[in-house]
């Protein structure tokens, strides 16, 4: 466990606000929930869902928070973001932002 945390830190480099283990938590959340619609690297070409991989982390965070407090309306995303904590949001945003589409 120590080791993974260390290598996680190395990957994250200077990013200060991010907890080292978070990228793994973000990955787990993305694999279990978000990828169902958004895919990991890309959504289906036939799907109506926006891509998330490689997007700006702050944009993703803001969007998720807006979905959570319903200032941005989408039945599905309001429901999904409604169950996310602040940590969940920054973890998953971090994870997607780091991925190459």
């Amino acid at each position: 466990m120590k080791l993974t945390i260390l290598s996680g830190l190395l990957i994250l480099g200077a990013v200060q606000s991010v907890n080292a283990a978070s990228i793994y938590a973000g990955e787990a959340k993305a694999a279990a929930v978000c990828s169902q619609c958004h895919g990991i690297r890309m959504p289906s070409a036939d799907a109506p869902f926006p891509p998330l991989a490689g997007r700006d982390a702050d944009y993703l965070k803001t969007a998720l928070k807006q979905y959570r407090d319903k200032t941005r309306k989408s039945d599905i995303m309001n429901a999904i973001a409604g169950s996310l904590s602040d940590d969940d949001i920054s973890n998953v945003a971090m994870y997607y932002a780091k991925l190459k589409p």
């Binding site: 279990a32 929930v33 039945d75 599905i76 309001n78 429901a79 999904i80 409604g82 169950s83």
Partner: peptide, 17 residues
């Protein structure tokens, strides 16, 4: 944990959508 996560999201969605 994952099952619970997905389940709760599903019920949440059902209620809201």
């Amino acid at each position: 944990q994952k099952k619970r996560l997905s389940k709760s999201i599903l019920t949440g969605l059902a209620a809201i959508i």
